[in-house]
Structures are given as C-alpha cells and as structure tokens.
Design a binder for these strands. Structure first.
Lengths: 85, 85
DNA sequence: TCGAATACTAAGGATTCCTTAGTATGCTAA
DNA sequence: TTAGCATACTAAGGAATCCTTAGTATTCGA
C-alpha cells in the first residue's frame, strides 16, 4: 500500500495525503494521537503496541485480541501474582 | 502531587508548568508524545497503558515489568498459541 | 525509454501550543 | 472569621508546529 493510500484510508484529504504521510515517515512532522489511532486502525495494529519498548510485552499486546477467554484468564492469573506495592 | 509539581518533575519550565498541566487535564490542549512519555515516567505508568482500551490487556501492561522471567515465558507461550494469519 | 505512479521536499497559510498575566477556589493557621 | 498562601483554572497572544499547495525526484512497468 502506498503512503498516499494509507493516508486516504485513514481519512486524510486525498489531495494532501501523500505529503502528510511522507512527512510522518521521514520524521519531518509528527501525527497527533487521533491520527496515530486512525493509522493504526487501518494497519490493524493496536496503538499500545507502538508505545511499548519491551519486546516480550509487545508480543503480548500484538496478539492479545486473538487470545481466547480461558487463556486470558490464565494470563491474568499469572500477572496478578506479582506483589502489590 | 499538584498539577504544577507534576509538570515541573516532567521537565516543564516551572513558570508555566501549572497552566500547561491544567490545560492538559481540562482538555484545552493536548501534550505531544514526548511530553506524554515524560509524564508517564514521573507517574510510573507505562505509556502503552494509556493507549489500551481493553481492561484485561491494560492489567497485563501495567504489571508486566514486575513479572519474573519464568512467568513471562509462560505468558508468551500462551500468547503464541494463537493462530497465525 | 516513455508514462504513470510513487516518493519526497520547500514554503507559507492555518492551526495548535506554550507562556504570561491574572482571577478563582480551597485550605490552614492566627 | 479571615488573612495568607497554595492550588486550580482561564484568556489572550506570540511562538511553534502542522497541513496544504505546488512542484521536483525517483521508481517501475509496458
């Protein structure tokens, strides 16, 4: 998918979608939170995934929506064993 | 902790920390990604936690840094059982 | 190698933000 | 009570950033 097309599907004005996307990708400008959310929606990536620097946790975030109810419970049970401060 | 103090600890200019924080909390303006990261650092909250709308996953994100190596492996093993698309 | 699609950039008007200055509100000690 | 202070909050404008326009550069397939 082209930069332009991605922007269009995220709801950008088609006439400026290309430069906008390019400026984001090149780091010239930064999308605001709403724009990031729309791009993530198009790309099928959880927004939280972008803001996670722990690779293990990133894998959990990326796949959690596909984890079934029982396995979720198992994961939460493990997580909840951490000592409360 | 006061709004002002939170801003100062996040590195804001002390003379404008109070209005800035208030504008963020009232929704008048929105902090950029770098500012969000600094505020999260001060508050001890993972940035990804803010961008997660699934309560179960939010719990995982909030506590993952305190989960030990073995339990991490167990969680990843569960997550990796999801069907690859 | 021509044409079209895509990638990329400069520049400026449009938008948003940070800062200043100040008011309003809550709280504590005299 | 109320004087004094910390905190919360707001308006307005200069400062910074972005979106848009216009255009050039690059890639790629016919």
């Amino acid at each position: 998918m082209s930069q332009k097309q991605l922007g269009i599907e995220a709801g950008f004005d088609p006439s400026s979608a290309s430069p906008r996307m390019n400026q984001y990708e090149k780091g010239k400008h930064h999308p605001d939170a709403t724009t990031v959310a729309k791009l993530c929606e198009v790309l099928g990536v959880p927004v939280a995934y972008l803001y996670c620097d722990d690779d293990d946790l990133a894998r959990v975030i990326a796949n959690f929506s596909k984890v079934g109810e029982k396995d979720r419970k198992r994961i939460l049970a493990i997580v909840d064993t951490v000592k409360q401060s």
